[in-house]
Design a protein around this nucleic acid. Sequence first.
DNA 1: GGCTTTTTTTGATCTGTGTCAATTAGTCAC
DNA 2: GTGACTAATTGACACAGATCAAAAAAAGCC
Lengths: 247, 247
Amino acid sequence: MSRTCCLPGPAKGEPPQEVACRECGLDPICQVLDYAEPESGVPDGVLARRTPIRRGEMLMAHNQPFHAIYAVKSGSFKALTWDLSNSERVVGFFLPGDLIGSDGLATKRYSYTVRALEESSVCSLEIDALTRVGRSREAIQEALITLLGQEMAMSHMVTTSLIQQNAEQRLAAFILSLARRSSLRGLSSQELGLSMSRSDIASYLGLARETVSRILTRFQKSRLIQLRKHTLKVLDSSALERLSALG
Amino acid sequence: MSRTCCLPGPAKGEPPQEVACRECGLDPICQVLDYAEPESGVPDGVLARRTPIRRGEMLMAHNQPFHAIYAVKSGSFKALTWDLSNSERVVGFFLPGDLIGSDGLATKRYSYTVRALEESSVCSLEIDALTRVGRSREAIQEALITLLGQEMAMSHMVTTSLIQQNAEQRLAAFILSLARRSSLRGLSSQELGLSMSRSDIASYLGLARETVSRILTRFQKSRLIQLRKHTLKVLDSSALERLSALG
DNA sequence: GGCTTTTTTTGATCTGTGTCAATTAGTCAC
DNA sequence: GTGACTAATTGACACAGATCAAAAAAAGCC
């Protein structure tokens, strides 16, 4: 009944922040696979657990044929696309517990390139191999529908809020979304790993590098946050919430 | 085998622009329901066809319990949410063939309020009633997964493009998206019904009313479009594409 | 028809954010 | 450690687009 990805990882040196299975976005599906038929177990090749990915390494490439959905176990990733002028654009960040690639379920292709921002690990679910599982197809599909729906609701919220906000509001909302996701997955909501560069944040929020930098230092001077290396400490989340005007 | 929504509507006075079933976003599901078991037909209460909705009328309300997915048959709708300061925000437009409400599948609540922008009609699919259908649950779920995936891919594209574009690019992209959707559904891609107000467009694109107005007249002066009443005629779509930098 | 109300357009400022340029801090290789 | 390279910060300036204000056009209404 216990799942390999839920067992403690090899804690050499500093142990990476890791989500527990019950906080993970893929868990609804893992449960269907694991729990329903304990004696037989899940056939090999369906679920790969805690695969390590090195910093800068690619998890999937834009337009590649879709074959698996991933869940971030530890570390972080960024999603990229390219516009006509071939300049890179960050379209999302993935933190522990987040799902990657679910929007390829219908299109059968990955809609972005995903790179690890640091030493990371993922669990992966091979979708094609799912048909070989003894488990009821119905239960699996049900779980997939739930996943897709959640992803959609999430992306919808982010979208609509970003568009009509100014730079300060966007950054406040961005920091809060990191904090919220972190706490949602059972990690600290104060101490956040800021593994992405200022340029990445700027690209994602549709701002200039310099603007991001300026506003972050402004936030720091007014004691809303504290920046050190690649760590961001939220000092006054209610002030950030007031700024972002999102609650 | 023929479906009521596919039969010509009552064409009193000016007939509204209407999508054919085969161009409609709900068609994958209609097909599963209609074609697989022709003699028994679809139980009552699952699929309601061509329900008329008057201008300004509400199709669904934000946070209301989810019960059905709709497809626009004719006319158009806007989706609204409210921010903390209680001011209205347009988060989307729905044209003939578009699906409304699919993102409530997982959350079980509608995530926005939807109002008709003009005399319109919709087909609706009662999700709970689906379980009463003789049809295989698997086939229906498969179709739902496809729907969700398409919706997600769509919303993703719109999102990421809007955020880092300037006002002119946003408007060019907006007009092109109207044209593209219109032609995708088998309607004209030149002559577009602009049923929404300038304020609606501005809210959706995150701009000021005045900016939208100014840029539209600029487009008109440079002979990219032609505006008359609530009709927009695309004169030079390739120029718009160059502006929007989306291809 | 004329009257009121709403929507759209146009003009005149003002401000936030992008751009360009220079400096400082951080990272990596050796 | 030192040096080379990249990322982040800070400042000066310009411009796109918001805001304020008013006129023009369109839509409702009796």
